[in-house]
Amino acid sequence: MVKITDVEVEKIARLSQLELTSEEKRMFTQQLSDILTFAQHLAQVNTDGVPPTISVLDLVNVWRDDEVKEWLSREEALAEAAVVEDGCFKVPRIMDEE
């Protein structure tokens, strides 16, 4: 059984930048516990020495040459933004440094 606590749900919500109502918090606490309990049966599988699969492709070294190509105009780049000022995307106050 995986038991997700309220504190964990709050932490995950914060990392996901989601705001939960207390009702949602209760619901997610239960559903996450259920889903993760279900997922936890992977623990039964012996994976000693088994490499992880990051991609199914055996591609390596996919790259391009260092060449500049213009794509969007500034108007296009900013067209979908909710708030624009001086050619920039505008955001409200930033609370703390990364």
Partner: peptide, 23 residues
């Protein structure tokens, strides 16, 4: 480099804001 690490936008310093951007 001439272009950015993962797209072909120019890396030139000092351009007008948001003129060297792409999807």
């Amino acid at each position: 480099t001439e272009s950015k690490a993962f797209c072909r936008c120019s890396t030139a310093f000092g351009a007008e804001p948001n003129t060297q951007v792409c999807p």
